[in-house]
Computed example of a mutant assay.
Amino acid sequence: MPISGKTRVVVHLTYPAKHLRTPEFFNPLLERLGIDGVLVPWEVSPAKLATAWEGLRAIENLAGVIVTVPHKLEVAKLCDELHGTARLLNVCNVAKRMPDGRFSGRMFDGDGFVAGLKKQGHDLRNKRILLLGAGGAATGIAHALLAEDIQALVISNRTPGKAEALAAELQQMFRLRQVSAGPADASGFDVVINGTALGLKSDDPMPLPVETLVPGTVVGEVVMNPDITPLLSAAAERGCVIHKGAHMITGQIDLLAAFLFSQSGV
Rank of each mutant, 00 (worst) to 15 (best):
Lys119Cys: 02
Lys119Tyr: 01
Gln120Lys: 13
Gln120Ile: 01
Gly121Asn: 04
Gly121His: 05
His122Ile: 14
His122Pro: 07
Arg125Lys: 15
Asn126Ala: 15
Asn126Glu: 15
Lys127Ala: 05
Arg128Met: 08
Arg128Pro: 05
Ile129Gln: 04
Ile129Phe: 06
Leu131Gly: 09
Leu131Asp: 06
Leu131Arg: 06
Leu131Ser: 09
Gly133His: 02
Gly135Ala: 10
Gly136Ala: 09
Ala137Cys: 13
Ala137Thr: 14
Ala137Arg: 10
Ala138Leu: 08
Ala138Gln: 09
Ala138Phe: 07
Ala138Tyr: 01
Thr139Gln: 10
Gly140Asn: 13
Gly140Leu: 11
Ala142Lys: 05
His143Glu: 12
His143Tyr: 15
Leu145Ile: 07
Leu145Val: 07
Leu146Val: 03
Leu146Phe: 03
Ala147Gly: 15
Ala147Arg: 15
Glu148Ser: 07
Asp149Ser: 12
Asp149Gln: 13
Ile150Arg: 02
Ile150Glu: 07
Ile150Trp: 01
Val154Glu: 12
Ile155Ser: 05
Ile155Met: 10
Ser156His: 07
Ser156Ala: 15
Asn157Pro: 08
Thr159Cys: 04
Lys162Met: 00
Ala163Leu: 04
Ala165Asn: 02
Ala165Asp: 12
Ala165Glu: 13
Ala165Phe: 00
Ala165Trp: 00
Leu166Pro: 09
Ala167Ile: 01
Ala167Tyr: 00
Ala168Ser: 13
Glu169Ala: 14
Glu169Asp: 12
Glu169Val: 00
Leu170Ile: 06
Leu170Asn: 00
Gln171Trp: 00
Gln172Ala: 14
Gln172Ser: 12
Met173Lys: 14
Met173Leu: 15
Met173Glu: 11
Phe174Arg: 11
Phe174Gly: 07
Arg175Leu: 13
Arg175Cys: 08
Leu176Phe: 07
Leu176Ala: 14
Leu176Glu: 15
Arg177Trp: 00
Arg177Pro: 03
Arg177Cys: 06
Arg177Tyr: 00
Gln178Pro: 00
Val179Asn: 04
Val179Phe: 07
Val179Tyr: 03
Ala181Pro: 03
Ala181Tyr: 02
Ala181Met: 02
Pro183Phe: 06
Ala184His: 09
Asp185Lys: 11
Asp185Ser: 09
Ser187Arg: 15
